[in-house]
Nucleic acid binder design. Structure first.
Lengths: 187, 187
DNA sequence: CGCCCCATGTAAGACGTTACATGATTGA
DNA sequence: TCAATCATGTAACGTCTTACATGGGGCG
């Protein structure tokens, strides 16, 4: 398998293209108008990213001549691109994922059902739940150590992190229940 | 005023140095052992950052000869550095802050009390609260639009974002109450 | 005609990552 | 003496940001 690293923006693009083949301009509009991970809508980020993905064989662009407007290139996922997307979505959540990029986990989950099916969504959620449970005691312990030495605003900020983690865990369980409840309705 | 942009890591360093003058190695250990924003502990990030900050006149390093070990350079904030740190902390929270970097707001708050005093901490919290309140309706509206068209995992992921925002707002109010309750005890 | 929207790109620079290099001291 | 730890740094590389460039089409 091609193991070149793909940045978060790359996966966002792959996920969007899987949903609907689009041009670079279309993608820019999506990034500009929605709070999808809040990636930049700047051409200097998106067009080079598309070039990289095409060079890696994960997407393929075809020029659309039909309409009267200027040349428009529509990109589609290749088989390899779909495989890379699925691989990214289905791999288990690690402690590292948790500490460095919760938003990226959410991006993975957002694309999971349409790309890999509801079973993969649930698997990702369960992986996230257990990673959170494993991570939580260490967080609490660091908090206890901090509370005695840090200024008030320091431990309060840490408290915010703990609350957000608890909130995330509650959401995870809620999402799992949502899937279990009406288990039908796969796309 | 010197308006060169300072990246998030730069402010993290300024805040830590304000708390306690340290060497690059000390800072690396702090980043490696605590979950302070989860910055990298790699020398390739920290030493260049220290050089930049010194070039900008925000910190000054003095070589410590005393102990038998290898040359150690201890960095301290300059007056300009303290001013830059205060300026960063006391500026109001914008919608842009909210969308792109909640962790950075938390870093600002964590350093606020020790750097600019409890009054600045409360001001930052109040600014955050009003920014969150202003941002919330738009979030909800986007959610309503999404719910009808996106796959389940898509709107569930968005729901997570909403819950986290609510959680952050609750924490903000809790933190404000904490300050109001025993208003004494400034550092 | 001038202006804005569509649509694509490039160039320069900043920042972080990974990996490597260096050298001194302490302890087995 | 060999390894680990303290302590600092550099080099190559990839990616993102900001700003600029280009060019067709519709509209007033």
């Amino acid at each position: 398998m091609n193991t070149a690293k793909i940045p978060s923006l790359g996966y966002a693009i792959l996920g969007l293209l899987h949903g609907k083949p689009s041009s670079g301009y279309d993608l820019r509009k999506i990034f500009a108008s929605t709070s999808l991970g809040t990636y930049s809508d700047s051409p200097g980020a998106i067009y080079p990213a598309l070039q990289r993905l095409e060079r890696q064989g994960l997407i393929r662009g075809t020029i659309e001549e039909s309409s009267g407007l200027r040349r428009r290139q529509i990109f589609r996922l290749t088989r390899e691109g779909l495989a890379a997307l699925k691989h990214w979505i289905t791999r288990p959540v690690t402690r590292d994922d948790l500490e460095h990029s919760t938003p990226e986990i959410m991006l993975r989950f957002a694309f999971s059902e349409g790309t890999a099916g509801a079973a993969a969504s649930v698997a990702l959620l369960e992986s996230l739940e257990s990673a959170l449970q494993a991570h939580f005691p260490a967080l609490k312990k660091e908090y206890e150590g901090l509370k005695s030495v840090a200024p008030r605003s320091g431990w309060l900020a840490f408290d915010c992190g703990i609350r957000q983690t608890e909130c995330l865990l509650r959401w995870t369980r809620h999402a799992i229940r949502t899937y279990r409840h009406h288990k039908g309705g796969m796309s």
